[in-house]
Amino acid sequence: MAYLHQHYLEGGLSQEELQEWNELLNDTVNQPFLIELMNGTWDEITAGDEVYLKSTRSAEILAYVRVMPQKKVFRMEWRLQIAVAVAIIFIAAGLFFFMGKDKTPQQPLQALAVEITPGKQGATLTLANGKKIRLNDVSTGEIAEEAGISVTKSANGQLIYEIKGSAGDPGKTNTLTTAKGETYMLMLPDKSKVWLNAASSLTYATVLNKEGKRWVRLEGEAYFEIAKDPVLPFAVESGGQVIEVLGTHFNVNSYQDEAVVKTTLMEGSINVGIKGTDKITRLKPGQQSSLTNGAMRVETVDVDEAVAWQKGYFQFDGKTLETSLLEISRWYNVDIEYKDNSLRTRRLAGSISKYENVNKILKVMQLAGALNFRVDGRKVVVEKN
């Protein structure tokens, strides 16, 4: 265990060793030995010590606990960096330590009176005739058939559309809606796949063909994997823009409570147009367009950050506290209240699984001591430390 601990700090573990290390961390039987290792590392570190932590590993680990006010970066002394690195090991195991001799104690999060669980798979399907189907309440198999279109719920919970016989009525539309704390995956008749994030909706013609295009309308956020069709373009109407593709992978974030509509391209190419104008912007892989008040801006980004939600984790790097807590609000179905509005613009860095207990996520965000959270029922109150 000591060997794995030391080489983890140095970033020298092989894939097999890293897997073994993670298994040790997740076994509560090992916690006393891990604490002993942490204490030993702290006691051995001096200003002239040759124990070192690779800068890349240091930056990666510190990202989990660093909270930065806008336009201001705090630099930790080397001894504290290693201490925080060790602390992160225990965070991974579900333990929390506040390191350093002159630290200011933080207010602990109280035990929750209401259990706040992570989001889960779930959605409501509204058929063309107005009938609503709670997908969590129906068994697998065919759940609806409309005008030659079969709608099936698969064993793993996906919603699958298939055209049977003659084409249906292009005027008939369905809407798939997720509430706060829900996400769902949909396969359209052309085999295109759509992952719908929490508090979102997707409206589409049941035959997917409207005026010579595979047309859908999005409110909220979704990740698209579009099946190639050289004849019928795929069009997404969302947040004052229209996206047109032939076949590609991309993410669209167009929540009404956020000021910017973001479209991020993973592969292929897409055209992003502003509704009511002839302005069209073509994106290349790795680019993201941002639409704000009718103005479009394009930049190169880390696409993994845009699809972190779809891969099961929160990615906070560079985001404001307000944007990050909006994500938490939608996923955990909680309200957010700020006691000091200046906290909204604080910048965050780090990532954490979406399936952690909400208290654990809030504790990680508190670690730098710049702010505190108080949970009141299903409301998270944000306060200065």
Score class of each variant (00 low, 15 high):
S289I: 05
S254W: 03
V272N: 08
I270V: 15
Y355S: 07
E299F: 07
K339T: 14
K279V: 15
T263A: 01
F250Y: 12
E322T: 04
L321D: 13
E322M: 05
Q315K: 12
E327L: 00
L265H: 02
Q288D: 12
S353K: 07
K284Y: 09
L265F: 05
L321G: 12
E337P: 03
V303Y: 11
E305T: 14
K284A: 13
S289E: 13
N251D: 15
L326T: 12
W309F: 10
R344G: 12
L321M: 09
H249I: 05
V301E: 10
S290H: 00
Y338V: 13
E299A: 10
G273C: 01
D304S: 08
E258L: 09
Y355Q: 10
I336K: 06
N271E: 13
W309L: 03
I274E: 10
R282E: 13
I352A: 13
G286L: 06
K275T: 14
K275Q: 15
L326P: 00
Q315Y: 15
R344D: 12
P285F: 02
V272E: 04
A349G: 11
S353N: 09
S290Y: 00
A349K: 10
P285E: 10
V252G: 00
P285R: 00
N357C: 06
A259T: 15
T248Q: 03
Q310N: 14
I270A: 00
E267V: 07
M266N: 14
R347Y: 09
D257T: 06
S351D: 14
T281R: 01
L325H: 04
V334I: 14
W309C: 08
R346I: 14
T281N: 02
Q315N: 15
K354M: 15
A308I: 09
T264V: 01
G318E: 11
K284H: 11
V260I: 15
H249C: 05
K319P: 02
N271V: 06
S254C: 04
T277Y: 02
K262A: 10
L321Y: 11
W309R: 01
V301Y: 12
Y255L: 02
Q256P: 01
V307G: 02
S289D: 12
S324W: 03
E258T: 10
R346G: 07
V298S: 03
